[in-house]
């Protein structure tokens, strides 16, 4: 699957915002934040087919496969 670039010129800003959201958190807190973020983003995407495709794309890079 090709995931189109939708961030464009704001990519660096968005990436920095993601990192900044974790400022001052320890690893466990960061994992918890990421989990909340994933849940919130799933709700934002909403379309189960789209979500299934995105999950598969993320899973494809897991080294255990």
């Amino acid at each position: 699957m090709i995931i189109n670039d939708r961030l464009g010129p704001q990519g660096d800003d968005v990436y920095a915002a993601l990192i900044a959201a974790h400022d001052g958190l320890d690893t466990d807190q960061s994992h918890a934040l990421n989990a909340r973020l994933v849940l919130i983003l799933l709700n934002e995407i909403a379309d189960p087919n789209r979500i299934a495709a995105l999950l598969a794309e993320a899973r494809a890079l897991s080294s255990s496969d």
């Binding site: 994992h31 918890a32 989990a35 909340r36 994933v38 849940l39």
Partner: peptide
């Protein structure tokens, strides 16, 4: 983790 963050 996902369960607990869902609850939160």
């Amino acid at each position: 983790l996902f369960r607990n963050e869902t609850l939160r």
